[in-house]
Amino acid sequence: MAADDQVEVNAALARALGRLAGGDRDALHSIYENSRARLFGICYRVCNDPSAAEDVLQDVYIKVALTARYFDAARGSALAWLSTIARNSAIDWHRGQKRAGRVFDPSDDGDAQARGLKDDYWDHLELRREILGCMETLTGDQRKAIEDSFFLGLTYAELAGREDKPLGTVKSWIRRGLKRLKECLEDEGADGTR
C-alpha cells in the first residue's frame, strides 16, 4: 500500500469509526472492507490457525463496534488502533489456548513462510524514520527477539523455548534492546506525545 493510499484509508477509517461511535452500526461495513486483510493478516500470524484466526477476526470487529468511542485520532492512526485490537485479541486467544493446556510448540510452524513478514516491511518503516533508525541500532539478537515478540505475540518463556535459550538470556536481550530503543527514540525527539 503506497503511503498516500494509506493516508486515505486511515482517513476513511477514522470517519467511519466516528460514525460507529455515534451509534451508526452500518459504519462497521466500511471499516471491515478497508481493514479486513490487514487485521486478518495479524490474527492469522499470531494465532497460527486459519480457522481460529477467522473466529478471532469476528470478535475483533464486534469489539470495534462496541468500543469505537475510545478511538482518538490525536493519538494515532485508525489502522494502528484497529491493529492493536486485532493483535491483542489474537494474543488473548493464544493465551486461552495455553490455559486450556494447548502448549505452543515452536517446531509446529510449518506455515512459517506464508506467515512471514512482508517483503517491503522496512520500506513501510521508512514512514517512521525514527523507529527504523532506532531498530537498526540494536544488536541482531535484541532486534530479532523484539520482532518475534511483536509479530508472534510470544511471552518471554515462549521466546526462550523457541530460541532454545535460557529465559534470562532472552529477557536480557529484550530489556536491553527496549532500553536502547527508548534512549534512541528520546534522542530522536520521538518520545513526545505526538
Partner: peptide, 19 residues
C-alpha cells in the same frame, strides 16, 4: 512507537466474507 511495525504483517484475505 511500535505501531509502524504493524506494516510488517502481510495482509491476507479470510477464506470467506465474514461481514
Amino acid at each position: 512507537h511500535l505501531a509502524p511495525l504493524f506494516a510488517g504483517f502481510a495482509p491476507r484475505e479470510p477464506s470467506r466474507d465474514l461481514y
